[in-house]
Design a protein around this nucleic acid. Structure first.
Lengths: 138, 138
DNA sequence: GTATTTGCAAATACTTTGCAAAACC
DNA sequence: GGTTTTGCAAAGTATTTGCAAATAC
């Protein structure tokens, strides 16, 4: 369930480097296919399979994060630090939530549940500032 | 993004009733395929497509909840009330979190982000009590 | 030199959909 | 009776995988 194959030596190939660079440049939490399109501008012959394999590998060694918002596709975040997210139900956009982490929640949940908690995540849904002004304009 | 086709009249078919009954009986947050297996014991000729269609329909009118834990398949919860979840990284089991709701978080996030927040969810990951004793036994 | 990584294409896993027949109100 | 729903099978979408050639260290 956590990182696997951590014993395998990771080589820094050009593909892997550019996938990581491109992902870290943006704050839009792109899907694998979005990353593929970004990387193809630098490496036209890269394959979608390579992008998937590298995003998976990089997230399993905690260099990036794999996110899930109930959409059919996963999203990726170049920032490996835990933080919360917020997504717009109108346009689908995903932003970082400016809320600070609530580490106390884990202790509270651990006591109440008997689980040994290792992580938690909070996601908010709502309407983003841009979509709010659009609705007002209609 | 929210319930759709709310104008359509919903008929209470035998299939729909049994799907809902079976889902409400359990607290295991089953996948569509799990529900299919449960329902087939009562209705051997039911189809997987019907199960998917009804789970989708019932969740879009907030009779049940559709959940997502980053696994390749969605899970369903017969309890439509908002509550948090906790999942075991060893055995994959999903439980309700006994933590009370934190409605203050939404206001905090709304002020900080400029989003008009409509909902939030917290999920915890860790090792469940059963798996903890198993690890100790090894 | 040798193990990892790549590109390609085929396979997989889960879910959705088209359609004619059946069921509901 | 007219619309919704079903079972079936086929299609769709996102992702993963097998393999021989290429690459990194």
């Amino acid at each position: 369930m956590e990182g696997k194959d951590n014993n395998k030596i990771l080589r820094m190939t050009n593909q892997r480097k550019i996938i990581l660079e491109e992902l870290c440049k943006v704050f839009s939490h792109p899907t694998a296919n979005d990353v593929y399109k970004m990387v193809r501008k630098k490496l036209p012959r890269v394959s979608l399979g390579t992008v998937y394999r590298n995003l998976e590998l990089l997230s399993s060694c905690n260099t990036i994060q794999k996110l899930d918002f109930g959409e059919p596709h996963k999203r990726f975040d170049g920032n490996p630090e835990p933080h919360y997210h917020i997504n717009c139900t109108k346009c689908g956009r995903v932003d970082d939530s400016p809320l600070p982490l609530k580490p106390g929640l884990e202790e509270e949940a651990e006591l109440a549940s008997g689980y040994q908690i290792s992580s938690h995540h909070i996601s908010f849904s709502g309407i983003c500032p841009d979509c709010q002004t659009q609705v007002a304009a209609n």
